[in-house]
């Protein structure tokens, strides 16, 4: 049987603690300040070289003066028809379209973005890249690179989010057919 002891643990011995000598204490303080300063210096120097604006296609085009020549990250929806890959030269070109404010459903947002003819677009050019497996129509592309004077975005890094992994809504209609009436034939086109 486990024994039960309800009383509080004996208070820690109130023995005298040898206090630190002032000279040693000074060493600790100076050492601490030096190290803190070193870490802060590292962070600030790292931030000056590593900081990038993360912007949308609209922001890129409206503020191209601000962002010209700067390395930025940009997010947009991939247009599948525009993907061109020269596998012998490892050159990848495609176009992304502005994604309006993201809603909860990324797949739908991306889908609607690619259908909007008025939405801003930007051409992407990448060199020395293995075409990513995830690059396809309606994927969300996050690119790191610079806007060239020709209006093409020269990217060095590409990160893709693929909506099919997220939205499970689209294909589910496929199994709803059995219980419902046969699909009416599409109305004849033209006349």
């Amino acid at each position: 049987m486990a024994e039960l002891t309800w009383e509080k643990a004996a208070p820690a011995d109130k023995k005298k603690i040898t206090p630190i000598k002032p000279a040693e204490r000074m060493k600790f303080i100076v050492g601490g300040v030096v190290m803190l300063a070193a870490v802060l210096y590292l962070v600030f120097s790292g931030m000056t070289s590593g900081a990038q604006y993360f912007i949308t296609v609209d922001e890129m085009l409206s503020g191209s003066a601000t962002y010209a020549g700067q390395t930025v990250r940009i997010s947009g929806a991939v247009l599948g028809d525009t993907i061109q890959y020269q596998s012998d030269k490892l050159i990848l070109d495609f176009t992304i379209v502005h994604i309006p404010k993201e809603t909860g459903d990324l797949a739908r947002t991306l889908h609607e973005a690619t259908l909007d003819p008025a939405a801003n677009r930007i051409a992407i050019h990448m060199e020395n890249i293995v075409k990513p497996d995830l690059l396809e129509h309606e994927a969300q592309a996050i690119l790191t690179g610079k806007l060239g004077e020709d209006g093409v975005f020269y990217a060095t890094e590409l990160l893709l989010k693929c909506p099919s992994r997220y939205g499970e809504e689209a294909p589910e209609q496929s199994f709803s057919q059995s219980q419902s009436q046969p699909q009416p034939a599409a109305p004849a086109q033209g006349g």
């Binding site: 590292l42 790292g46 931030m47 590593g50 900081a51 604006y53 993360f54 990250r73 790191t144």
Partner: peptide, 18 residues
């Protein structure tokens, strides 16, 4: 009111000394 991210360069500069 902007979105700033820190890329690989930041980490490659800050972490090795530590």
């Amino acid at each position: 009111n902007t979105d700033i991210t820190l890329g690989k360069d930041y980490f490659m500069q800050v972490t090795p000394p530590l």
